[in-house]
């Protein structure tokens, strides 16, 4: 436990001093501001615009739902990409440079490395996501006060859980291939497969990829929580399985 806490602390210091934490916070604060701002300003900018040939755009009055639509778009697409870029070297860089040799030869268990890295990455992702959510929530509540959002907890937890899956994939890729490209290709490959599976409508209920942005439909009441629970459960189980697989593979990795 002591080694785990020490390594977690080292990961936090690393995230701070290598600007990983700052980048995550800055980008997600930006997303948090952009989501309601885009919803508020875009209709004003486009309303009444003459497209030529007598076509004039008339934009409807923006609502809180427009801000949340932007939020899910930003977090589900650009946000996930940022998570992948920031955490792609989480294991691969250490294995490549050989920095783990000194700590492993101090008697620290290999599983501790994986668990500590996952914990801190998940925590940074959680803080960044919460900050983003908080900023969007505050601006949205300011511009469009009133209405409570239906099924908000599930809608907002789902993208974070999908982000955990991405981090677990990056760790597994790093353990398997000891390179950034290995991490990125593993993660990219799995996401492509999930998106291809999404072409089959019946699979949507079980496909973790629907969690990244699809839970907006909970807020619009187009779908019920039961439509997302299986995907959420599968995503969590898959994340846990990937971490266990990473530990097992790392235990047998020649360094």
């Amino acid at each position: 436990m002591k080694a785990y806490l020490a390594f977690c602390k080292k990961e936090l210091v690393e995230s701070w001093r290598t600007y990983r934490l700052v980048i995550m916070l800055a980008v997600f604060v930006l997303f948090g501001i952009l989501s309601p701002a885009t919803a508020k300003l875009l209709p004003k900018l486009l309303d009444g615009a003459d497209m030529g040939g007598g076509v004039i755009i008339h934009m409807p009055t923006p609502t809180a739902l427009d801000a949340w639509t932007q939020f899910f778009k930003n977090v589900g697409q650009m946000g996930m990409l940022v998570v992948v870029i920031v955490f792609c070297g989480i294991i691969a860089t250490e294995l490549n440079r050989g920095t783990l040799i000194n700590v492993l030869t101090k008697g620290m268990r290999r599983s501790t490395v994986i668990l500590a890295k996952f914990t801190v990455a998940a925590a940074i992702w959680a803080v960044s996501y919460l900050v983003c959510l908080g900023v969007t929530y505050c601006y949205t509540a300011y511009y469009w006060p009133g209405k409570a959002l239906p099924h908000a907890a599930l809608a907002f937890v789902a993208p974070w859980v999908f982000g955990l899956l991405l981090i677990a994939l990056l760790i597994l890729g790093g353990v398997c291939f000891k390179s950034l490209y290995g991490s990125l290709l593993t993660t990219g490959g799995v996401i492509v497969v999930m998106n291809l599976a999404g072409l089959i409508p019946q699979s949507a209920k079980y496909n973790p990829v629907t969690l990244s942005a699809g839970t907006l439909e909970l807020l619009t009441k187009a779908k019920a929580p039961s439509d997302f629970i299986p995907a959420l459960a599968i995503c969590l189980a898959l994340t846990a399985a990937l971490i266990v697989a990473s530990v097992l593979l790392f235990n047998h990795k020649q360094l």
């Binding site: 002591k2 080694a3 806490l5 020490a6 390594f7 602390k9 080292k10 210091v13 000194n102 700590v103 101090k106 008697g107 620290m108």
Partner: peptide, 11 residues
């Protein structure tokens, strides 16, 4: 800081 990390890992 590095030696402290190593010491903590070593228990």
């Amino acid at each position: 800081e590095y030696l402290r990390l190593c010491g903590q890992i070593a228990g």
